[in-house]
Structure formats: C-alpha cells, structure tokens
Design a protein around this nucleic acid. Structure first.
Lengths: 356, 356
DNA sequence: CTGTATAAAGAGACCGGTCTCACAACATAT
DNA sequence: ATATGTTGTGAGACCGGTCTCTTTATACAG
C-alpha cells in the first residue's frame, strides 16, 4: 500500500505558488478568488493547483477571515422525527445561503447542551441554533450572546433572554386539540409529556422549565377551566421518557377510579409509546380510550385507526430558524422576535364521540 | 443593547497572559493543559481566564496540531430512519473517543456527495464516513485516500477501493426473507427498491450501482433460481423514490396478468409507501398481498397487521463504523476489511401462507 | 520624453493557538 | 566552589490561509 504514509503534508498555496512560479500572494488570490490577477497567471496557477490536487484548508481560511461558514445546531434528540425534520429545514436554509451545518445532540440534558454550545463556539461557528433543554438555566446562552455569536432558539422560547426564537403556537395548538376533545363529549382529559419530573404529578405549571411543554399545559388547563371541569391539573402526567415509564404512567392513569377517556400526547414518541401501551393493555382506540398526538409522524397515518394529530409544520419551523439566523449573521437590522409557526388539527380516527 | 457590537474581538491566550502577568507560552500551557507549570502560576492564569471568560479557539488549535477532533459523515438522507439511527451509533462511538461529528446530506446525489466530501476534507476532518451514492464513480473517494484522510464506507462496499466498509449482510438477508416467502407458498415474488433507474425494469443485475441493493437483488434472484421459478428478474422494480412513483410502480405490478403475491421492500421508506399504496388500492395485507420490509422502523410494529421485517441493527452498524474509523485515525494496524453486521428476520403478520 | 495614473505581482504581517528551544533559578553531587 | 541536573518560564517560529502595503510594469497625457 503505497499511500499508507497517511500524512503526506497537504498541498498548500505555497506549494502551488512554487509550481506555478508565482508568489504565494498571487497564488492565494487566484485560489481564494479575490483581488486582481491576469488571465495568463490565473491559468498557470489553476493548472498547477489541478496537477497537485490542491484543496484549500478551510481552517486556515476561517482563521484569517473570522468566518467559518458553519452554523451550529444543538438539538434534543436527532432520532426524534421532530428534530430530524427540523434539521432538514435548517440545512436547506443554510445551503441556500452557502452555509454548512454542524449538528450536536444534547439528549435533552443540560450539561451535554452546555458542552455542545461551548464546543461549537470554540469551532467559531458563525451562528447557533439551540433547542434549550431547560429555560431556567441560561447562563451558557447569555455567554453566546456576549461572545458576539448570533443565536436563535428553536421550539422553546426564553423571554428573559432577549433573543430570537422560532416556536410552534403551542398554547393555541393545545387549546384547539383540547376544545376538540371536549366538543366530542370528553370530560376527563389527560395530558402526557416526556419531560423529566420528580414524580409523575404536577403541582405548579409555572415551574415547568420547558416553555413548549408549559404553554401546551397552560392551554390545556385553560380550556378545562373555561369548560368548568374540576381539577384541571389532575390528569397531567410528565415523565413518559421511555417505554417502561410510559407503560406505568398509562397503567396508573387508567386504573384510577374514574380514568380519563382521552389522552393528549406531547410529541410523537410519547404518542407512539402510548399507542403501544394501550395496545398491550388490550384497550381499543378510540372505543376504550381516545388519543391525539402532536406531530404528523410516519406511523400516525398507518395505524388502525389513524391517529388524530396536531400538525406542527416542523420543516417550516426549521427553515425559518435557519433563515432568521442567517439574517442575523449578515447583520440584518431586525427587532428581536418570537416567531410562531401555526399548527393545525388533523382529524383522523383516534377520537371517539361520547354521547351524554 | 450594549452587546450589539457583535464582534468584540474574542479573548485570546495573549489577553489572558497579559492579565495574569505571564508570558503567552505559559498561559498557553495552562489553558491548553500541556507542559509543566507551577501551581501558583496555574491558579493565576485560570483566574484571569475565568475573569475574561476565555474560550479557546478550536480553529487555531486545529491549525497547529493538525487534528480537528471532528469526523465527517456523509449520509444519503438524514430523515430516513436508517441513517438517523446510524448517525446516533456513529456519534456515540465518536463521543466515547472524544471526537465530534459533522453531518452532511447528499440526498443520494453524486454531485452533492462530491462537494460534501470536498468540504469536509477542507475542514480538515480527522476521518470520513461516507455512504456512497454510487459504487461506480469513486474518483472523489480515491482522492480522500490520497489526501491521507482515513475513510470508512457505510452500508455499501466498493471492492475496487481497498478501504474499510461496514455493511449489513444484504445478500443473506435477502436470501432469508425470500426463502421465508417461498416456504410460505409464494411463487410470484417482487422486489421493490427506491434506487433511481431509467425505467422501472431491470435487465442486468451487475449494473446496479449500489452494492447493498445489488447484493439484495442477487440474493433474491438466487433463491428464485434455486427454487426453479421462471423469470427471476421479472418482478424486480426500481425507482420507488417517492409517493407517486411508488403508487404507479405498485399499480403496474399488481395489474399484470399474474401479479406477485408478495412484495419485498428495500427499505422502510419504500415499505411505508408500499403499505400506503396497497391501503389506498383497497388491498388487504396479507390476504391480498403479502409484504416484508427492511428495517425495524417505528411504523412497522403498529400497523394492522404488523409488518414482518428484516432487522438490520443499524445502530450497531453505525457504532462499528465509528469505532473502525477511530481505530484508523489512531493508526491501529488493521487489515482493510469489510465488516458485515448480521441481520435477522422478524416474523410478524404481513405474510400469508398460501396452500397449493 | 518625462510625469503620472493604473494594473498586476510580490513581500510580509497577521489570525490564535502549539511547540521547540533557550535560559534562569535552584537543588544535588563531586 | 564547580559541575550537573531538574524544573519552570519566556521568546519566537510555525500552521495555511487572507490581506495590506509596496514595488514593478505598462499605458496614456502633456
């Protein structure tokens, strides 16, 4: 294997310059596409570069220009369809503007998020899109701003932070879905979310550290209250983080004296887990229990019955976030804003009508 | 907004050194964690760094060390569950070894793949994992090798390229699935893949430019041949790239004089499209048509009936690819290998038994 | 034919780290 | 007291680009 040398020093502008018999500065002008160079010299340099298979060192380039052409994205969980769709939206916006994307996974954990942010700042990304795991620990995000790196929050807003955010209209979405359930005659409604929580219960909505979840819960509760239903917090359950947890949450929920007749799932993963739980408990949807899930995920349209969902238009959210960030990077004079992407309820077959 | 200045020069080692009243070299030693420095000076420097909120410039660091700590991944389509799972496997392996990951999407297009590879090489990634869109255009991959950057192919192998590859045991998987279908009494079997093709038909297996698809088709065909079934190529269809295409492929396939009784889907996206097509055609699975899909995707276990699948263990594949690449980066003396991750057939309910 | 404007090419500083080498200070051996 | 070693610190080259400033060559005007 003659190429096992492995690190034969890469070809540099200096090498090309020497081969083309011009100065390093001139070669750099040709290869970097700036300044003025005669056609003849340009050809010489290009020929030499091709012969040597010159590839520019973007690192060095970034060092002197101060721009990396990269935008960093910190998401909760790439495997979640919500985020992978969002990432595609961001990537598309980025590509259109000539930027590339580095993705880092936080696993919805604060420490991982912090170090991901630090890492990306270290790599001198031109801007950052972050899905903050918690809205009550924001020092690291403050630092991003202080470092002069444009920042856009995704899916969750932090009012104290005076920074752009792209979110769904979570409150309205929850309100619409909840009103629909009530209109169908349901009176005992549960809201199930994946957010970590000490115990499954909930006492103080204001303390939910994830704004998307909080606003949905608020919307949910406000509808129950306006409908005059008792104990609006009673059927709210957090902590459906994995299969076992969800199973036990659902089991406990349904074995109450008067169990809920409808479940609202905070995201498509929770929705899927709930679906499977109900299936394994031998319960039929929507005859025994009704459900609505957030996100128009793959699986929701092929089940029997197909699942009624809140369509979040995540791709648009991602694209918008990307565009906004790029506008910031290019110093567009914009007011700090929270951009809300509207959602819509897609009625399929997972909600029963209850006669009373 | 007092921080609208936006680019207040970042804090450098020199700044920290000045504040700590030591030389740049000493400050660098403390901040970079190399060399020897007395405890007293270390404290001074750390204090100054903390006060100034120093963050190292990884770009500059990479420039002098020649290592970026990044591995580049070029995948076909992040939104495909296959790839997002693989990416998680790769990321986990990377994180464990202290590497970070940049992801680029090729959209299964050769040009996009080439420019992604170029870009990543330009960013001086320490290694590259690529899912080659085609196995017959490999000059850009040759160049990666010539540039001295370790490379691991993912999901598809290219024997001519003398480079590590991590794939499934595609041939065996297809054989197992096909034999199973035949054992259930099926005699007219179709294979449907998403690969681009001029027309849907297929004349020369050897010319399939994607090794995974080719090997699966080979396996499929070999079983049909060994079972003495006529015209093994007859029901092989490529080009099920999107919903419309798949619909028309399926429609044409089933409106033949003697339509296939079982379909084998090349990946979970194709599988899902097939499922929906059949549903919209009013055909029942498995009564009217049987099917098997590759990949244990979300949706396959919640349909009615649940789908019999070929479980590909993609996470393991990704992890293995990551580990292999890192071993290469760290100059482990390994022979070039093709690593095959075994698959297994998970029988669920989408295949009917045909009595004859 | 000289003066000046202009275009093209070269020289070298710079970005922010790492790292080699020189050197100073002090401890231990002879 | 001198030689030798050890440890901690400073000076400055270097990575591979960009970019400013200077120099050289050429064109055109007076």
């Amino acid at each position: 294997m003659e190429d096992s040398a492995h690190s034969k020093r890469a070809v540099t502008v200096a090498d090309v310059a020497k081969a083309a018999k011009v100065s390093k500065a001139t070669a750099a002008r040709v290869l970097g596409g700036y300044g003025v160079v005669s056609a003849k010299i340009t050809d010489q340099v290009m020929a030499a570069a091709a012969a040597l298979e010159y590839r520019p060192n973007e690192l060095a380039r970034s060092m002197s220009t101060g721009r990396s052409g990269i935008i960093g994205v910190v998401v909760g969980d790439i495997e979640n369809a919500f985020f992978s769709l969002a990432v595609r939206g961001i990537s598309d916006a980025a590509r259109l503007a000539g930027f590339n994307v580095i993705i880092a996974n936080s696993g919805e954990e604060l420490d991982a998020e912090k170090s991901a942010v630090d890492l990306l700042i270290g790599k001198r990304v031109d801007g950052l899109i972050v899905t903050p795991a918690r809205c009550d620990s924001i020092e690291h995000l403050r630092h991003v701003r202080r470092a002069g790196v444009p920042l856009v929050l995704f899916d969750r807003a932090i009012p104290e932070l005076d920074v752009d955010a792209v979110t769904g209209d979570d409150r309205d979405a929850a309100i619409t879905a909840t009103r629909y359930l009530i209109a169908q005659g349901h009176r005992r409604l549960a809201y199930v979310s994946a957010m970590d929580a000490e115990d499954g219960g909930l006492t103080d909505i204001g303390r939910i550290s994830n704004s998307a979840v909080r606003e949905r819960v608020e919307g949910f509760v406000s509808v129950l209250t306006e409908a005059g239903l008792p104990n609006p917090l009673h059927y709210i359950r957090l902590g459906a983080t994995n299969h076992q947890q969800t199973d036990s949450v659902i089991k406990r929920l349904l074995s109450e004296g008067s169990p809920p007749t409808a479940l609202l799932a905070s995201d498509s993963l929770v929705g899927l887990r709930i679906f499977k739980s109900l299936q394994s408990l031998g319960l039929s949807i929507p005859k025994d229990v009704s459900m609505i899930s957030f996100l128009d995920a793959d699986w929701t349209s092929v089940t029997v019955p197909p699942i009624t969902i809140v369509d979040q238009r995540v791709y648009e959210m991602g694209k918008l976030a990307g565009e906004r960030l790029i506008a910031r990077i290019e110093r567009a004079p914009l007011a700090v804003e929270r951009l809300r992407v509207s959602t819509s309820l897609v009625v399929r077959g997972s909600v029963a009508t209850i006669d009373r």
